[in-house]
């Protein structure tokens, strides 16, 4: 029998963080909800067999996000008319925080996952590497590259505004 009470407690304690992480990863409110829903469903189905549900949920989140960004033969097709690009929660960035969130959306999926796990989920480099299934050195280099891009983009953005 599955421990539903334990799962509910887990979701109530960590659901908010996971949902926000999913939104940061996808850059979209609704896709973030779908992503966290899928990740928590996986956690529920394996609830009795996993020792560290939060780590499992984070891993499911980032792998689900990276998988969803891969082009599949049955997936998205090129089109002449570009669809509306999702903004950060559909709102125009107006201050520095929103600007950073917008720039985060311009990173590639793995860079975004590293930044979110390191600076939002406060994961160590080892934990981040374990969640993404990549070496620690790759986490370090990816993180440094992502931060550098954010700085450059932010500086350029500020320059264009002034």
């Amino acid at each position: 029998m599955r421990d539903e009470a334990g799962f509910r407690t887990f979701v109530e304690a960590n659901g908010t963080t996971l949902l926000h992480a999913a939104r940061l990863l996808t850059g979209d409110h609704h896709r973030g909800e779908d992503l966290v829903q899928g990740a928590l469903t996986k956690v529920y189905l394996k609830w009795d067999r996993i020792d560290a549900p939060l780590a499992y949920a984070r891993k499911a989140l980032v792998t689900g996000h990276i998988d969803s960004t891969r082009r599949r033969w049955w997936g998205e097709r090129p089109t002449e008319v570009l669809p509306d690009a999702p903004g950060v929660d559909g709102l125009v960035a107006s201050d520095e925080r929103d600007e950073l969130r917008r720039l985060l959306g311009e990173l590639n999926p793995r860079e975004r996952a590293v930044v979110v796990l390191r600076y939002y989920c406060d994961q160590s480099e080892q934990d981040t590497a374990a969640a993404l299934g990549i070496p620690v050195g790759t986490v370090k280099s990816t993180c440094a590259r992502a931060l550098a891009r954010l700085r450059v983009e932010a500086a350029a953005s500020m320059g264009s505004q002034s």
């Binding site: 509910r8 908010t16 963080t17 926000h20 940061l24 928590l40 929660d89 925080r97 969130r101 600076y119």
Partner: peptide, 16 residues
């Protein structure tokens, strides 16, 4: 600043 920006806007709950 990056951490603050990332935390901005969190608060929605997930319905178990």
């Amino acid at each position: 600043q990056l951490r603050a920006a990332l935390r901005d806007g969190e608060g929605d709950r997930v319905d178990p």
